Amino acid sequence: MPLLAIPFPMLDPVAFAVGPLVVRWYALAYIAGLLGGWWLATRLVRNTALWNGKPPLDAAGVDDMLVYAAAGVILGGRLGYVLFYNPTYYAQNPLEALMPWHGGMSFHGGLAGAGLALWLLSRRHAASVRSMFDLAAAVVPIGLFFGRIANFVNGELWGRVSDVPWAVVFPDAGPEPRHPSQLYQAGLEGLVLFVLMMALVRSGALRRPGLLAGAFLSGYGVVRIFGELFRQPDVQIGFLAGGLTMGMLLSVPLIVIGLTLALTAPRHQTS
């Protein structure tokens, strides 16, 4: 081990166990993200002055949003991983595609699934789909932050080999020190995007339907591509042409869609 490498802290992925019930940090990260998002979304819809007219949901409707979004993330995330990251394996083992507890979720797939679920919810509540997406965009960075922290605790999705003083030797990644890219992504996708979303909310972005969602999508695409420069690609895919990664490739459409949403948002705010 190089002199400056930091040994991986031996963190037990199991937070606690009560008899046969085992609760993992990863599950707690999902719960923290959902509860944090629910709390913030409830506060946003109760502040009617933030919106152009009325919010897309009332406080009770946020509960529905939580259920719809969670279902979309799980189904879309698993389907995205199967299609984008390991299609050959799952074509040979189709039943394992139905077993997300064996590992394998794609953020981009989860985002698409959540988007479809929120579109259906907007139709149910006769609400503006753009405003629905704006509400979701405001709270998603909370879940991203906790999710990336959980990736670090699990010692998964590690970074590329590096000699920076804060490089970490992960237990399942060989003896080489690597970038703690999960923490980079927690900072960029979680903290930085959250600060950006809240700054836009304070500036009146929710009165321009689609602006906040567009800023999130394009912002996420940019920080994800940057984060991929430090992250080791999935072993079954490796690097693509020109040193690109699948995460980079899937993030390009997000930037395009995000810019389109932001640029087509209404330009005149109303109170």
Rank of each mutant, 00 (worst) to 15 (best):
A150D: 07
A32R: 06
M99Q: 14
A29Q: 00
L40W: 09
G77H: 10
V82I: 11
A49P: 08
L28A: 10
D134R: 05
V161E: 14
L196R: 03
P2I: 02
M10Y: 10
G227D: 11
A29E: 05
T88V: 15
G19M: 00
A213H: 03
V23S: 04
I6A: 00
A173Q: 07
L249V: 14
A114C: 01
F152G: 09
T88S: 13
A138K: 04
M105I: 05
A5R: 00
H179P: 09
V140T: 15
I257S: 12
G143I: 01
V169T: 02
F16L: 09
M132G: 04
L211C: 04
L183H: 01
L98S: 11
K54L: 11
I74K: 01
M132P: 04
P56G: 04
G219T: 12
S162G: 02
G214T: 05
T270H: 12
A241V: 13
V62Y: 05
I237D: 09
L206Y: 11
G36W: 07
A186D: 07
A17S: 15
R124H: 13
G227H: 12
V129I: 07
P141L: 13
L211S: 08
P20G: 08
S218Y: 09
T264P: 06
G214Y: 10
T88M: 13
L254K: 11
F194M: 14
G187H: 08
N154I: 03
V18M: 11
G72I: 06
F226G: 11
S251Y: 09
A60N: 11
A215V: 10
T42E: 09
L250P: 02
L196S: 01
S271T: 15
S218M: 13
L250A: 00
E176N: 09
A199D: 00
W166C: 00
L40M: 09
L118D: 04
L157K: 02
G190C: 10
F84T: 06
P209T: 07
H108I: 01
G147T: 06
L50G: 10
L57S: 01
A112Y: 00
F230M: 10
G76H: 12
W51A: 09
L121M: 11
Y90S: 10
A138M: 03
I6D: 05
R148E: 12
T88Y: 08
A17M: 12
A205S: 12
Y220A: 01
R178G: 06
R231G: 10
L193C: 01
N151H: 14
S131L: 09
D58M: 03
G53A: 04
A265F: 13
T48I: 01
D234C: 06
G110S: 07
Y30A: 07
V223T: 14
G155Q: 00
F152W: 15
R267S: 13
F152D: 09
A59N: 06
L188M: 15
A70H: 06
